[in-house]
Design a binder for these strands. Structure first.
Lengths: 348, 348
DNA sequence: ACACGAGATTGTTACGTTTTAATCGAGATC
DNA sequence: GATCTCGATTAAAACGTAACAATCTCGTGT
């Protein structure tokens, strides 16, 4: 029998979480004051603040985020939708996002679209349901119309690794045309003659832009841009890269240089070529894109185009949170980083 | 001037999201019915359901997750706390989690503890504030007491890649002792004599267990388990691996076989050794752990211990959701997968 | 013609917080 | 001593949904 008026729950059972009211009762103040301690501590006198804070600790009170969101009209979470969480490029971006978000007290809801429009749509729906404060997204295709639907709901959107289409939105990207040009210039400088471009889904902007850069470099060197052979794969993974290598080997004449739209493809291609006895770079030069960590550790270390990945995620988050917290003074920005060429063993 | 009584918002401005009431008004039913359509469609007559559903579409209504959570007492989100999102092992786990969660209509909040107890604690606080339905966590150390604090709040917890300490909790893990033994048995079979263990923080259970397995294998082969040299690094990344290689090279006598506690360390060690002109596997045998995708693409393809990673995440989520959705019939399970040895070029 | 019951729908209340306006108290000013 | 001011605190009203009991509507059996 309980002697102190508390309902003593059996050990291991769950006691309902204490609410702001319980804290208020224990501290001898009103619920409003507790809310003030939580949200505007400077508005409450030192002594009461201390009393409330120790009550919070004693009860193990944790603010109910949903109630807060409901009343305040906005949450402390942001949504992050990426194309492939298995790609270290996006992992690095996510790390940048997560670090800054968590510094600012925001939670990150992760969505992986796997390049599928349907899954992306589903993720955005979840974000909308959660009433996230804002969304960071690397769209899986060019159709960014649905993002305006989010904006109409008052959810800020920042494009990641995708340039803005209009001036009224924030975007953070890396110049893929320049990057593609850098890659092919480098191949040409190594004496490449027949260059092929191993790429992913045609709908992906990154693939298109890198291709345009490649063609531009060809033209600048006095070659026919139309001479760029293309091997397009449905995914941009190492497995797809290996299949691409098989495709290439099945053709009558092998290119003497390959530009891969990302490092995963390049690593897969490399594996496929080596298994077939093709020497890299002696028989074929190979360059990737992203400069993921593993590019330097591969069988033949991979030349690549480096992007400021972590920075990309961090900067995008910075813009998003600024847009959320200072909606009136916020100026939309389109930030374009420049990529770097990293030369290793896989290119002549 | 508006002629239809609607307040016509200026183009591009944000209209407040329609609520369940607006839908009800348009469909000519009560809010309760709309709620029923949303949550128990079988309870409402076909004709009304259709009317409500088309009203939902017309208004672009999206359920307010926070209000729903507040009222229902539980949310449709789960928290996932991992040690290193930069490690493909955890990325694969996360992919498994995300896939199943999203199939079941759950959102995943991602937290990266970076092996830091403080960050882990912060993530758990965020999870608690969001009133997540459950938590999947790979704890960064052995002290799982704080997880009981979550359980007291009614938040289910499933341990991932960590065996259960008690029978009243779910856990999904892979037998690391067996894995460690497999690795060292393989090294011994290749004629290894002086074996070193390159590992991460001592507090990590994975590192301890793999070490125990290694020692067991030594003992079983009639060797002195104490002869296992150890190089412990503060992180389990490729960069740390490279530093480990430098440490090893600085010693007077180089081991003839290395067992690395994960593939990232192994890849770093490999890079470090190769830069110093040490041949793998001729001078030194090298085996990693996890069999991440990149293990097979490295300079010398890496022998490793394979774990059912994606499955690990999926199974853990399965258990968690079962515990959430069927709290009374749910039976706690401790599932232990077995690892596999994958032999490649890096070992004799 | 009537009561009955099953199915469909509704009204109401509560969830935990934030926010606004109102109240209180203690000095300072006339 | 009455009035005013200002800071600190409080009371009360939302926010959008889910759940439950209550009500309504018919068709059915007597």
């Amino acid at each position: 029998m309980s002697t102190d008026g508390w309902d003593e729950a059996p050990a291991g059972s769950t006691r309902p979480s204490p609410s702001i009211k319980d804290v208020a009762a224990l501290a001898g103040v009103s619920p409003g004051t507790v809310s003030n301690v939580l949200n505007r501590p400077e508005k409450v006198a030192g002594a009461t603040r201390d009393r409330v804070e120790s009550a919070i600790r004693e009860l193990g009170f944790v603010r109910h985020g949903s109630a807060s969101t409901l009343r305040a009209g906005h949450s402390r979470t942001i949504g992050l939708s990426v194309i492939d969480i298995g790609n270290p490029f996006f992992t690095d971006v996510a790390a940048g996002v997560e670090d800054l978000a968590s510094e600012r007290g925001y939670a990150v809801i992760l969505g992986n679209s796997s390049g599928s429009r349907v899954k992306e749509e589903r993720n955005l729906l979840v974000f909308a349901e959660q009433r996230v404060r804002g969304v960071l997204i690397t769209p899986s295709d060019q159709d960014t119309l649905r993002l305006d639907r989010l904006r109409e709901r008052g959810i800020s959107v920042v494009l990641v690794d995708h340039p803005a289409e209009r001036a009224d939105q924030c975007a953070v990207a890396v110049n893929d045309v320049t990057g593609g040009a850098m890659a092919v210039e480098h191949l040409l400088a190594g004496g490449a003659d027949r260059i092929a471009y191993v790429t992913g889904p045609a709908a992906m902007r990154q693939c298109q832009d890198r291709r345009r850069g490649a063609e531009r470099a060809l033209a600048a060197a006095g070659r026919d841009p139309g001479s760029l052979r293309e091997v397009a794969m449905p995914a941009m993974t190492a497995a797809a890269g290996q299949q691409a290598a098989e495709k290439l080997l099945a053709q009558d004449v092998l290119p003497d240089a390959l530009f891969c739209a990302n490092d995963l493809l390049a690593l897969g291609v490399l594996r496929g070529l080596m298994q077939a006895g093709v020497r890299v770079p002696d028989d074929v030069s190979l360059i990737g894109y992203d400069d993921i960590d593993f590019a330097s550790a591969s069988a033949v270390s991979l030349s690549s185009i480096r992007q400021p990945t972590y920075q990309l995620g961090r900067t995008a988050t910075e813009l998003l949170l600024d847009e959320c917290d200072n909606p009136d003074t916020h100026a939309h920005q389109q930030i374009m980083f420049q990529p770097d060429l990293v030369v290793r063993e896989s290119t002549r």
